[in-house]
């Protein structure tokens, strides 16, 4: 991807100029008075809000809760996705029977399942974990299935000629050969799980980052809300880009597009 080249070729200056231009436009808009000053606050108010979020103790308490939910979601949804993906990748019949369903269910908006998850898991952290797990199951299962099919047949022959058992095949042949698609699945899964957890927190919750955003919205504390949004969108974007880099380095393959 051209973006990757641009990131590595040391084109820091033009990108820096771009961000300065964007920030200057924002500041001009804020100071122009065209929009309410509270809604589009000037940059110094944003910095104050951002720092205010970072130094408040309840931010870290809520961040810990969101991360715990996210980890549980990734563990549950990831494991299920891995198992289903391995089965689908291994059997051509199963892949033809069930993979189209995964492909079509994958991009449907998962948040609409939240009312059902509340019924099943209650209004606490469990329903948010379930929301994240359902979200990340699909991209992980699809990437793993594609990864299994992409394993070089020569490697499989080597494994078989050494009479590797199933578990040895899995750990010594399949998983190492699938690092790139696995990382890619983790990247996509992390992104949608984070969105699922946070959106569920904004809809119905008493804790977590999503709750904090909603709380700031209801108090009309705009600088705080901007600060929270910068933090959460920033976390998602940074993790996405880091995992994409790792996946590209691991596989020297083009990143899968969704």
């Amino acid at each position: 991807m051209a973006t990757q080249e641009a990131l590595t070729k040391g084109l820091a200056l033009p990108r820096l100029i771009a961000i300065v231009v964007i920030l200057a436009m924002w500041q001009a808009l804020a100071l122009s008075g065209l929009l309410f000053r509270d809604v589009v606050p000037p940059l110094e108010a944003l910095v104050v809000g951002f720092v205010g979020v970072l130094i408040s103790p309840d931010f870290y308490a809520n961040l810990a809760i969101t991360f715990a939910e996210l980890l549980a979601a990734l563990a549950g949804g990831g494991l299920a996705g891995l198992v289903v993906g391995l089965c689908l990748g291994a059997s051509r019949f199963a892949s033809k029977a069930f993979e189209p369903w995964l492909g079509y269910l994958g991009p449907t908006p998962k948040i609409i399942l939240f009312p059902l998850l509340i019924l099943m898991f209650g209004v606490g952290v469990e329903s948010k974990m379930a929301m994240g797990a359902v979200s990340c199951f699909f991209p992980i299962a699809i990437s793993v299935a594609a990864g299994v099919r992409g394993v070089d047949p020569v490697l499989l022959k080597v494994g078989r000629s050494f009479r590797a058992r199933l578990d040895q095949m899995l750990i010594k042949i399949y998983l190492p050969a699938m690092i790139a698609p696995l990382l890619n699945g983790a990247r996509l899964g992390f992104g949608v799980a984070l969105i699922g957890v946070l959106l569920a927190e904004t809809k119905l919750s008493k804790q977590g980052l999503g709750f904090m955003v909603m709380d700031a919205y209801q108090r009309f504390d705009m600088p705080r809300m901007y600060g929270l949004l910068i933090v959460s969108v920033g976390i998602a974007a940074v993790v996405n880009i880091v995992l994409e880099h790792l996946a590209i380095q691991a596989g020297h393959k083009k990143p899968t597009k969704h």
């Binding site: 641009a6 990108r15 771009a18 984070l194 946070l198 904004t202 901007y226 969108v233 998602a236 880009i241």
Partner: peptide, 18 residues
């Protein structure tokens, strides 16, 4: 272009209260 790539990766829907 890198900023658009970042935008594509950013979960904008989370900013719906904004």
């Amino acid at each position: 272009e890198p900023w658009f790539a970042l935008l594509a990766a950013a979960p904008l829907v989370m900013a719906y209260p904004l």
